Simulated assay, not measured.
Amino acid sequence: MKTTDVTARLASFGGAKWDLHLSARQRIGAGADIIEMTIGEPDVPVPSELMQQAITSMQAGRTGYSDGRGEINLRQALAESYSTSRGRSFEPDNFLCFPGTQTALFSVMMGVAQAGDEVLVGDPMYATYEGVVAASGANLVPVPLSPEHGFRMQAADVASRITPRTRALLLTSPHNPTGAILGKADLLELCKLAREHDFWILSDEVYEQLVFEGSEFVSPLSLAEYADRVIAVSSISKSHAAPGFRSGWCVGSKAFCDALLPYSETMLFGNQPFIADMTELAIRDGSSVAAGMSERFSRRAQLLADRLEIETSLQVHRPEAGMFAMINVATTGLNGDDYAWDLLENGVAVMPGSAFSDSLTSWVRVALTISDAEFETALGRIISHAKARIGDAA
């Protein structure tokens, strides 16, 4: 039987990028001694107060159908929180609620781009972005993020890729996989281009609360003069260590949310009321775990960089936020894919950089989310492996 064009467009965006991660999981399940540093699972459980709120709400009968926009109590909490953090006024109708950032971004993309359009995306990029753009029928136009510029998007690189078909620029700040953060000056230049050429700014802000000391997060939503063309997506997955609850949202102008609502209702019809109650508590009380995660991830990234750059010739891009660090493994004589599979045989699983871009063929991404004890053991294995490989390459 024949399937639709969208299945064909997405056929190459399946799970192949995660083959090494899945292989590591299988080997661990069979008893292999492998330290997993592949994906960004928070290193703490869901806070007990959030878990209890979800249970209490279920027991109170908050298990029925939801408001199609998302429960009003949650949207009111989001409006108050964003009004404070972005320095301008938001109302509940500036929000639509979804099961996680991924669903929010997918829906937003379907609302701004279609066949024949172009979407500018920083390259490297999170692994699902290609599929999100392809699902809409639009063409993804990569904008290089170079290590020479700290993996921060440059307005000149964006400007050179704008065409009459450009409909959106997708930003990720803090960035996955590199941990880079765009500053206010960067965002102003990009927003000026968006206004000049009449395209949307889409902002994935899921790592907003995992910013390391000495760095600062700025949202394009705080630039009031560009408010009509900025749409952001986020969730409690990272900030509140609750990825399995799938609770996210988009925020934009009321006109955009009104226009997207029928699509959202056709697909989802709102989020679960008991999860909305849990998320309201998370938003109103703030995160009890984000600061601790930021401190630990920053410290581990610093340790990784210091030790690898002192004891080996591997180079580490020092992240400003998030759950990951990038390692340039070119001096081993292996590309990132071969290095990652070879390191797996030596007891550490990391993600090949090619899962995020062809520009990262000499890089791997390392998760900072394992315990300190495991991290120390993994560092020892990475260093021993590098010394052996660099010796062979020499």
Rank of each mutant, 00 (worst) to 15 (best):
F13G: 11
G14W: 09
H21K: 11
R25D: 10
A32I: 02
E49G: 00
L50M: 11
M51V: 13
Q52T: 09
A54F: 03
Y65I: 11
E71M: 13
D93I: 08
A113F: 09
E118Q: 15
E118I: 10
L120R: 04
P124G: 08
Y129F: 14
V132S: 03
V132W: 08
A138V: 08
E148L: 12
P164N: 09
A180K: 02
I181P: 02
D186Q: 05
E189G: 04
L193M: 07
L202F: 01
L202D: 00
Y207K: 07
F212T: 06
S222I: 09
E225I: 10
Y226R: 09
I231E: 05
A232F: 06
I236L: 11
S239N: 10
A241S: 15
A242N: 12
G252C: 04
K254W: 03
L261D: 10
Y263H: 15
S264H: 14
T266K: 10
T279L: 04
R284Q: 07
V289W: 01
A291I: 10
A291C: 09
A291G: 13
G292M: 15
M293Q: 14
F297P: 03
F297K: 02
R318Y: 04
A321S: 08
A321Q: 01
D337A: 14
W341P: 03
L343Y: 03
L344H: 07
N346S: 14
V348D: 02
G353R: 01
D358P: 03
A367S: 15
T369N: 11
S371W: 03
T377G: 08
I383S: 02
A386I: 00
I390E: 14
I390K: 03
D392M: 12
